[in-house]
C-alpha cells in the first residue's frame, strides 16, 4: 500500500532470511513501476528464496502495491510457484502416456516407499522433493526420471535406488 507497510512486512517475518528479503526488495524496486510484473517478481523471488512463504508474498504485495490476496491468487494458480520449502534436489517422475505405460507408475510407488513421502512433499531432512510431471517430452527414453536438470533414461526400480543414493551421498551436486 505504501512505504510503511513494507517495513511492517519485514518486521512481521521473524526468522526470515533478511539478506534474501533485501535482495528481493531490489528486484521489486526494478519492477514496481511496470504494470503486470508480478509473475516476473515472483519467479525471481522464488529463485532467491527457494519458495514463497506468505510473509514473502506479503512483502512483495506491499512493494508492488497489490493486495496480498491477489498475489497469493497468482502464486496458488501456477504449480511452478511453491509455498513450502523445497528439497535440495527435486525428483520428477514423468507420468506422460509413454512413461506411464512403461513403468512410471511403479517408479512413483518406489519413491513413496523409499523416501516415505507423497507427491508434492519434501523429505524431513530437506534433501528431496518429489513431484510428478505430465510428459517432459522425452518419450523415447521412457520411463524417464528427472533429478533437478538431469534426465535419466529407461529407469527401473534398481536404477532409481542407485540414483537416489548417488544424490544422497553428494556425488552429484545440485
Amino acid at each position: 500500500m505504501d512505504g510503511k507497510t513494507v517495513t511492517a512486512a519485514k518486521n512481521g517475518c521473524e526468522g526470515c532470511n533478511q539478506e534474501a528479503f533485501d535482495e528481493i526488495g531490489n528486484i521489486i524496486d526494478l519492477y514496481k513501476d511496470k504494470e503486470g510484473s508480478l509473475i516476473q517478481v515472483l519467479h525471481r523471488a522464488q529463485g532467491i528464496y527457494g519458495y514463497l512463504p506468505l510473509e514473502l508474498q506479503s512483502y512483495i504485495a506491499d512493494g508492488l502495491g497489490l493486495s496480498l490476496s491477489e498475489v497469493s491468487g497468482v502464486v496458488t494458480f501456477y504449480p511452478f510457484f511453491k509455498t513450502k520449502p523445497q528439497g535440495k534436489h527435486t525428483i520428477s517422475i514423468c507420468m506422460g502416456t509413454a512413461c506411464y505405460v512403461r513403468g512410471g507408475k511403479k517408479l512413483v510407488e518406489t519413491i513413496r516407499d523409499l523416501l516415505g513421502i507423497e507427491v508434492g512433499e519434501t523429505t524431513e531432512d530437506g534433501m528431496f522433493t518429489f513431484v510428478v510431471e505430465r510428459c517432459i517430452g522425452a518419450c523415447g527414453l521412457a520411463p524417464a526420471v528427472m533429478v533437478d536438470d538431469t534426465v535419466y533414461r529407461q529407469v527401473d526400480e534398481e536404477m532409481l535406488k542407485a540414483i537416489i543414493e548417488k544424490y544422497r551421498k553428494g556425488e552429484v551436486s545440485a
Partner: peptide, 16 residues
C-alpha cells in the same frame, strides 16, 4: 477476497 488455487480447487478467499 480473490480467487485462490485453480480449476476445481478454486475458492474465493483471503490469501492462501
Amino acid at each position: 477476497l480473490n480467487a485462490q488455487n485453480r480449476g476445481f480447487d478454486t475458492v474465493i478467499a483471503p490469501a492462501m
